[in-house]
Design a protein around this nucleic acid. Sequence first.
RNA 1: GUCCCAGUAGCUCAGCAGGAUAGAGCAACAGCCUUCUAAGCUGUCGGUCGCAGGUUCGAAUCCUGCCUGGGACGCCA
Length: 556
Amino acid sequence: MNIVEQVQQQLKEAIGAAVAKSAFADAGELPEVMIETPKNKENGDYATNIAMQLTKIAKKPPRAIADDIVGNLDTDSTPIRSVDIAGPGFINITLKPDYLGDVVKDILGKGEDFGRSDAGQGEKVQVEFVSANPTGDLHLGHARGASLGDSLCNVMDFAGFDVSREYYINDAGNQINNLAKSIEARYFQALGREAEMPEDGYHGQDVIDIADALAKEHGDKFVSMPEEERFEWFRKHGLGVELDKLKQDLAAFRVNFDNWFSETTLYEDGKIDTALDKLRQNGHVYEEDGATWFRSTDFGDDKDRVLIKQDGSYTYLLPDIAYHEDKLQRGFDKLINIWGADHHGYIPRMKAAIEALGYDRETLEVLVSQMVQLYKDGEKFKMSKRTGKAVTLRELVDMVGLDATRYFFVMRSGDSQMDFDLDLAVSQSNENPVYYAQYAHARICSILRQADDAGLFASEDHVALLLESEKALDLMRKLGDFPQIVADAAKLRAPHRVATYIHELAASFHTFYSTDKVVDPDNRELSEARLALVTATRTVIANALRLIGVAAPDRM
RNA sequence: GUCCCAGUAGCUCAGCAGGAUAGAGCAACAGCCUUCUAAGCUGUCGGUCGCAGGUUCGAAUCCUGCCUGGGACGCCA
């Protein structure tokens, strides 16, 4: 437990005791004491609405209840300075700021671990994200999903969840056959022969590149190869190349997975049949019109879904169900899937499948990464000039830069559609919010370099001196918020909260910086205290940026 | 037609497990560099929180209906 949590705990206990002493009702009927930090500083450091919540039970006006509670409040075991009753019945608490010095010491002691908590209590969570088909480049939507997913995993891990990151490789379906046929056609074209692209072929430049490379390296050796053998070779080769490219692009985007799960293994290990049998035994499967159906309507879906088509092949859904069954058998408490907006309609059927397999449907949480629209010069920027297709992740990073791309995606809530302003993201100026936080970090590093030259070093011995400055107090309060911000972001699956916090923290630092000179050889003790504060600030900014995959530069 | 997401300042968005006077960035305007990085700071301007009901001591937040924008409704993946 960190210092801030300890203080909050003390306050809750003291208020709880005062409420009990006021004897409005039996202990069992009393609501839990909740404390919050008021938006407006004038309303103290903490506030509780307990008096308003008790109006029904106590049958008295809230301000009178608050009076009773405050009268019974024992402040000896807490850092409370003063207590006020305000507004409709809030009890506002102002603290003696001394404990904030301990926050700085706490941060310096914990370093890159400051902000960690056990909020997740070791819950085993698997997050599956991106999972784009290995048939082409990652595009804009995948970039957002990757950004959200990776940041969420970092945040949840830091908040004490046991997180596993997984990428599901759709390497068994029809789309891979189409990839192989497309490569085949491009290969023949590369050799100057006539060849038709398949109807659902992949027309991207990447396929042409693969085929050209094959023609260059192997000449016409595949032309004489038996068709089936050639097809199989192209299939494996294409898959390998595409998959390598995905892995490289994601790694370059600072996104790494614990597990790359191949759909093909579901077939090889008989897991498709196992899942189908299980559904059948549970009585949720029937035959009709020559197809095999899943009665998903029993679990709230709009209509029943086909598992095996008339031609005997599987729909995408059946292996997907088998995949989720496999995940569940691996012992995760929670499965989080991050899907693009175009797949959100599949949530009900997947949840239905979870339930039909005998699990709690709430085990599966699907987060939807909404559409992204690029804007440039105030107009929609639709297509990549080079390929004529959607803008790829690689192109985006080339244009915008890695840090700005990651930051822009994660600073918005994933479940709202977003406009991505290319001009803003590209601009190396104060208009660009990503530099605001990075600049705070670089500024601190610069201060520390100069302090070092002056023979001044951070010291915890005089942190009490910091309490004199209102700007320093604000900054310390903000630093103390970090563990709770991370915990909330994890529980709410809302990594953008960390980005919002980073901005606030940077603002708090910049404000402090503008008035409180840190390095002052004529005032060594104050300098040492302030160096402790800015060192702590640097640590928290770096920790927070790390969670959202953005670099914390020493110089800018 | 059904379902999902969104609608908050001129623009882009936070805030939504109910709380006090609804916030930030950009844009606009006015100041601040002989002093640790001006990618910064300070201030001003800017709002019927889509509309209408309801629940409540209290609603941007919860419920219902409607309007607008986007998406999804395949024996494609």
